[in-house]
Design a binder for these strands. Structure first.
Lengths: 351, 351
DNA sequence: CTGAAAGCGCTTACAG
DNA sequence: CTGAAAGCGCTTACAG
């Protein structure tokens, strides 16, 4: 009896635990692999009944296309890179969670790439990472995101990216703006509303855009209400706990102490706590403290710290979502995330 | 003039910013692509001078093989997955840093996969992740690493993995053991050496192996020196700040207070601080506190917290390094990381 | 030690 | 709306 083509059925799947391929799906559903490919890629050029038949088969056999084969043919992987240069663990983890929220069930995965933006070769390191992996896109997290040379390099090699920053510094389609200025202004208005008039500020490094924004936002909100902060009440520190300690020592050692301190992040607020505790200055009775980040630290400290919350997870989700949107999707305004003040036990009216 | 094969030179590279391929390298160096492939894969079956000539060319043109093409042919990607189910940001970030230390310049990248081991479908989620991406291997971080069903699934689908846990629970080649028991014992001996005799213990959940190890290590070290902890001095909590508060309230409310408390992690120690501060109990004068983790929180609290340090970055580095070792590398004993006590300001002899 | 052929699982470019 | 051919950049299996 001559060999005859048998009718195909799911029973004709590859055996031995091997996963189905596009060829199996095409053969079993009686269409060409090109049609299956169109369905995978959501092309509209497929008849509805064909699509439904093939999709049903895909579900039945648990088919999912091989990202490496697709990537090889597309000349681009299904990986999103997250590039960051930031020591704050909770911030990074929240950003990752947010990105993964956006990537879930999209076929994309998240590849992490911490770096050191102060080391000379770091831009080349990112370039190699992007080109070698043929990344689909990368999210730039502060402070790396503030480095124009990094963004320029990515633009030059044709890599799509999104940039997270406190203020817009690129085309809207690439920006997620976090408006740190507004959060700092809210803190200022809150302290004024409590009745504080002798207020001090411990800022992060002036080289960080986030720090400039928080400082300006705070100072200008006070000025708008008629309170000019003297230079001696503004101390630049380094966003670290230790630098917060040093700054607080300057502020709290003299006899003429401020009644409230706003710090550019929670780490430095913890430094203020340490100095106040050691000196027997009671928080919030003798000193109100307001931080920025609303990190876990804020609620672990005693008394719990009033702080400006950043919606980091939303930020990460937005930045990743923008990267995997279809090419032509219009983007009229930059994505926007707003911080807000969370009031706890470290602040009260001055006595 | 008839077409003649021109001598090839780097000038004959593809233009237009396209990267060199294995074909370019083969053509320009006058060997077959198979030989180039052998060099990429460090096969010994290449003559030394051939290897050196080709490697020089690769460096000159900046060639690096396409991981997607290699992955497609190998039927396995160059991605390492990190699977975790742990809310402690610093721990996760350190683990990632460690893994990336091991992966640097190896051609492998790290793909992160947080999950919720209490949700019913989570094992299937990991399975899809592994199979879809054809992962080269995955690192299992506590507490997910303690789930035998997860490990069984990975073994069943033939995915290599390493398991990080406080005690060996798999074949040596797959284990990175962190010996939490020893760290807790060191804390116990330290408190005894200070002269404490009324010691209390706030444990993590009994469902966590790490918690059992820390508890047993602490209790048994005390017993070995003749101190039996009464049941009333051992309280099970949930590894969280809030659960630490609740446990500390029980321990510190009566008139008969312990002079020292050891907690299963730093979060719960922060809870003890809160209760002590609120009640006006002075740390360390009236109460010594020792935590476990040596998280950033430990040095941010006031007074700074004596705590058991885990070398998380080393742990992550080891777990990742084991995954990318050549297949046959012998592994006689499980990799081992040991914790040690870091003494700060929260502990002193009882008054 | 080296190489020519076939194949990994997809997509692109072209044709109908 | 659908399909047959060629190709993405590598490796495997086989041959010498």
């Amino acid at each position: 009896m001559p060999a005859r083509k048998k009718p195909e059925s799911p029973a004709a799947l590859p055996t031995g635990g091997k996963a189905a391929t596009i060829n199996d799906i095409a053969r079993l559903s009686g269409v060409s692999k090109k049609t299956v490919s169109r369905i995978i890629n959501h092309s509209p050029l497929v008849r509805k009944d064909t699509r439904e038949k093939v999709e049903a088969l895909m579900r039945e056999v648990g088919y999912s296309p091989d990202p490496m084969a697709r990537g090889l043919a597309f000349r681009r992987s299904f990986l999103i890179g997250m590039v960051y240069d930031n020591p704050t663990a909770q911030y990074i983890v929240n950003m990752q969670y947010g990105a993964l929220d956006a990537l879930r069930d999209s076929g994309f995965e998240l590849v992490v790439h911490p770096c050191d933006s102060r080391s000379p070769g770091y831009i080349d390191g990112v370039r190699r990472f992007v080109q070698q992996q043929k990344l689909h896109g990368v999210m730039l997290v502060p402070r790396a995101s503030e480095d124009q040379a990094l963004a320029d390099m990515l633009a030059e090699i044709g890599c799509r990216y999104t940039r997270i920053a406190s203020v817009s510094m690129d085309t809207p389609a690439r920006m997620v703006v976090t408006h740190d200025r507004d959060g700092a202004a809210e803190a200022a208005e809150y302290l004024l509303s409590l009745g504080h008039t002798d207020i001090a500020l411990i800022t992060g490094p002036a080289a960080y855009r986030s720090s400039i924004e928080r400082t300006d936002g705070f100072v200008q909100a006070l000025a708008k209400r008629g309170l000019e902060l003297p230079k001696s009440r503004i101390i630049e520190a380094g966003y670290t706990f230790e630098s917060g300690v040093v700054a607080a020592e300057k502020l709290l050692s003299g006899k003429h102490r401020p009644t409230a301190i706003f710090t550019g992040n929670d780490e430095m607020a913890a430094g203020v706590y340490k100095v106040a505790m050691r000196a027997g200055i009671s928080i919030p009775r003798q000193l109100s403290v307001v931080g920025f980040d609303d990190s876990p630290l804020a609620s672990r400290l005693w008394p719990s710290l009033t702080s400006v919350r950043r919606n980091t997870r939303d930020t990460g989700r937005t930045a990743a979502a923008m990267l995997i949107q279809p090419e032509g999707t219009p983007m009229l305004a930059a994505a926007s995330i707003r911080p807000h003040l969370v009031i706890r036990d470290s602040s009260q009216p001055p006595e």
